[in-house]
Amino acid sequence: MQINAVSSGLSTLQSGQLRVDQAAGDIARASLPATPPAAGINPPAADSAAAMVAGRPEAQELTSSLVALNVGKTEAQLGVKLVQTADQVLGTLFDTRA
């Protein structure tokens, strides 16, 4: 039973990490310009960046990636809690039998 709980916790943690990695990669790709700026043209100011994202079709994909990032974080935290709880229960069982 304990091995299954630890295994499930580690699997959940790994799944969360993979989700965070994928979402972070998607967010990083979304922040890259579609085409390189031409020579002599200044990049847009930081305050207009939000307006540019809102008008792009990729804005919805960016929002989905941000949600996936938070889901992955929560999933990883859940996996850690599961492993910690299994460790505590296993420790209690050893203390009871000793």
Rank of each mutant, 00 (worst) to 15 (best):
E61Q: 13
T12I: 10
R29W: 03
R56H: 13
L66G: 03
P33L: 07
V71C: 08
A23H: 00
V20S: 02
P37R: 01
Q77M: 08
A86P: 00
A59Y: 01
A45D: 15
N4W: 10
A30E: 06
M1E: 15
D47P: 02
A23F: 00
A98L: 13
T96C: 13
Q84V: 04
A30T: 05
V20E: 04
S8I: 04
L90Q: 07
Q2P: 10
T35D: 13
I27D: 00
T85L: 15
A98E: 14
D47W: 02
A34H: 10
G91T: 10
P33G: 04
T12E: 11
L62N: 01
L18A: 11
G55F: 01
S15Q: 13
D95N: 12
T35Y: 14
Q88Y: 11
A46I: 05
D95P: 03
A23Q: 01
G72F: 00
A98S: 14
P37K: 02
V6M: 12
P33E: 05
T92Q: 15
A51M: 14
G16I: 00
P37G: 01
I41N: 13
P44A: 03
V53Y: 00
N4V: 10
L66T: 03
V80Y: 03
A86G: 00
G40D: 02
S11N: 09
